[in-house]
Design a binder for these strands. Structure first.
Ligand code: FES
Ligand code: FES
Lengths: 150, 150
DNA sequence: GAAATGCCGACAGAATTGGTCGTATACTGA
DNA sequence: TCAGTATACGACCAATTCTGTCGGCATTTC
């Protein structure tokens, strides 16, 4: 429950890997897949999706592959997840087009939307750069987030 | 992605409903199910699980049913979700017993655990009471949460 | 004892996700 | 210009997870 899809996980791993190899011009889907032992074709599709949404730059042909389209600091975990799994909505009814059949009776949707918003904020505050290296980050300082309840 | 299961949704709705009817001694699963048009038997199972984890008190027999075990202010959304869907983990590998096969290579797990923690905090800061009534809550004040990024 | 209710496990159907395949297209370098 | 390497994309199957139902039993009230 409430867990990332494997695809999103793969996507984050791949971006992290790219962020850790800024020297190379581009890395092929296969390169990355092999590095982590994940299905190459599947990862390829994931990278393609991120390319389409502008997170990556791609280049076909020999020595082709993918590279970050922006600085790792400028790519948030939220963007990655959104690109791969679509809009993030905690409420069961996937929003937008078709509302779930109990929309009229469901009284909980609206308050949960705010929770959803908070989660999105958390995700937006994490960048690929934060994921890469920096094993140290300090357990306390956490990832730069402070939560205050009134 | 990252969305609540319908069960958790139902559970929250039911608790909210109970919180809004504090006068009655107990409400049967069927009562609540009918109120929202959700499958009675399914809801029954959900309520049972919440009973087992101590969120509800139950009473069999005529005029039996369920009632909140504690004040609505003392029951968090996190507890509800945890009771129904089990431990909340954003990382694909469901933790504990069996780790996913790429545990050694997955370098992303640890940083995400912190994100997970943040989300859990958000959920813990929301009580059933917050969900019930109070349509007003002020869009700005939100639900009593302030997020600060460094 | 009968009716209303909760309790529990097993299971079938539906929906989602994960992963594969085939084919087309683009770039590189010899 | 041709062979090789790569991305792009859609269709499709397989595995898993989620939803919902059923049947039987236990407990309380009248
Ligand atoms: S789940 Fe769709 S409206 Fe609440
Ligand atoms: S998904 Fe299991 S370790 Fe990263």
């Amino acid at each position: 429950m409430l867990k990332l899809s494997k695809k999103a996980d793969y996507g984050l791993m791949a971006l992290k890997y790219l962020a850790e190899h800024p020297e190379t011009q581009a890395l092929s889907a296969k390169d990355v897949a092999d590095a982590y032992g994940i299905p190459a074709q599947l990862l390829a599709k994931i990278l393609q999706r991120m390319t389409k949404t502008g997170l990556l730059r791609s280049h076909a042909g020999m020595n082709g592959g993918y590279a970050l389209a922006r600085d790792a600091r400028e790519i948030s975990a939220y963007e990655v997840i959104h690109a791969i799994d679509g809009p993030l909505f905690i409420t069961s009814c996937t929003k937008g087009a078709k509302l779930c059949d109990l929309t009229p009776s469901c009284t909980i949707k609206e308050p949960l939307a705010r929770v959803n918003e908070s989660i999105a904020e958390v995700l937006k505050s994490i960048s690929i750069y934060d994921l890469a290296e920096h094993e140290h980050v300090g357990e306390h300082e956490a990832h730069g987030l402070v939560l205050l309840t009134r």
